Amino acid sequence: MLRWLWLALALWGAVHPMYYFVSFLAGNGWDMGVMIDAWYVNDSTRGLTWDLTIAALVLTIWIVAEVAVRRNWAALLAIPATFCIGVSCGLPLYLWFRSHPV
């Protein structure tokens, strides 16, 4: 039961933030440079950007360390999900993979 909650949260963590990313990019000519500049517009957004960057790095190290032991190679898919979508998708996706019996 909990395993499916992780998958549902991973889907929500992919769709919900992506709505805002796509809306922002559509309104700004699909220029990723403008989006990256917005991440550093003030101390609040800069702090959030660094918070999520550090969380993504820690999650990546955790995934790699556990995959080396558990040999659950499919769980590596959570790394690109983390960096291409966000921690809100990558973390529950990894927990979904991790909760699968090996």
Results as ranks from 00 to 15, higher is better:
R3I: 00
L5F: 14
L5C: 12
W6V: 14
A8L: 15
A8W: 12
A8Q: 11
A10N: 03
L11D: 10
G13M: 10
G13F: 05
A14G: 13
M18F: 05
Y19G: 12
Y19V: 15
Y20F: 15
F21E: 11
V22G: 10
S23T: 01
A26V: 15
A26Q: 15
G27I: 02
G29H: 04
G29Y: 06
W30P: 05
G33W: 06
I36M: 06
D37H: 03
A38S: 14
W39A: 12
V41N: 12
N42G: 10
S44E: 12
S44Y: 04
R46Y: 03
G47I: 04
L48A: 13
T49N: 06
W50S: 07
I54S: 04
A56E: 04
A56G: 02
L59V: 03
L59K: 01
I61D: 03
W62K: 08
I63H: 10
I63M: 01
A65V: 13
V67R: 02
V67L: 09
V67E: 09
A68C: 14
N72A: 03
W73N: 10
A74S: 14
A74F: 11
A75H: 00
A75C: 04
L76M: 07
L77D: 08
A78M: 02
A78W: 08
P80L: 08
A81L: 10
T82H: 04
T82C: 10
C84R: 03
I85N: 05
I85C: 01
G86Y: 02
V87W: 07
C89G: 08
G90N: 06
L95K: 08
S99C: 11
S99L: 00
H100A: 15
H100M: 14
H100K: 08
V102P: 15
V102W: 12
V102E: 15
